[in-house]
Amino acid sequence: MICIIAFVVFAVMAIFSANYRPLAAEAFDCVFRKMTFRKCKTRLDERIKSKITGKLMGHTPKGAAFVFKRFEILSWIFVIVTIVSLAYSGYSTYNYIQYGNCYGPEVTGGFCIYNALEGEKFTELQKKIEGETILPDADDDPAIGLEDAKVTMIEFGCYSCPHTREAQQIVREVVSQYKDRIKFVFRDFPIEQIYGDAFLHAEAANCALEQDMFWEMHELIFTEQEVCGEEVHPEDHIEDAAKRIGLNMKEFKKCMKEHRYKEEIEKDFNDGLKAGVSGTPTFFINGRRIIGPKPIKAFQKIIDEELEKAGEI
């Protein structure tokens, strides 16, 4: 039994170091030919068993006895664990090829974390939202594409989050590739914990929506994300931006002052929480989640699958 792991382990090591090649060959022999017990030669499994027992004997004779007497079962467990971990490695390799990381579409390194439970800002990723997660819908949020498309891609984003900004380029590509077949919806998830001006930006975009200029404002805020806050006061920047895209400034200022869309944004945020969003950007493509700015392949794969499911391909 141990021969199997030994073979796998030594075979892998043999790729990197010639020292392990004879051992791998021996393990191969042990697995496939069931070596006969020659008196001048030890079976590999017996040797490994004795070696481990001997080493333990120096420290804990009882432990040594335990291993010695239950070696067969222990090696079975080992084999299973090895196979499972190999399967995971295989899966990770697949993910790496498909999505550019080892974990699949759901996880990424580039991600603005919203920590719902602790005051601390950058603690570990947490998703402990009470109750069941409820997948989000498009609600009445700004959308691009085919109104009654079979595939809906919803983004929860924060205007002040650099990773959301990073994802915009990918979103643009996806939207331009699929615009007549999918519907893209942007919903607000301002992470105020980290970015003090996040909410303000969301309000600005919503106030622009009122004047049918949502996407213009949306693009501009992301494009000028770095300028804002560093060199110019956020409020001034927003007003300036509104002016530049040609909004009716009186209406806009009023809308901002009244916080007309506060509830709308909060609803988006809460829907996000309910859906298990823990940071931005998080995408839902017909309910299938992609977290963080992923290579476009990851989006294409899921969208194509969903289109196919819907009979659109």
Binding site: K39, C40, S50, G58
Partner: peptide, 29 residues
């Protein structure tokens, strides 16, 4: 315990180096 068990264990537990097997006197064994 097989002779090889014993030899490998002694080697690993206390660096005691002994021989095990038929010592090339298979015929007698």
């Amino acid at each position: 315990l097989t002779p090889h068990n014993i030899a490998i264990m002694l080697d690993n537990s206390a660096n005691i180096m002994i021989r095990s097997g038929a010592h090339c006197v298979h015929s007698w064994f």
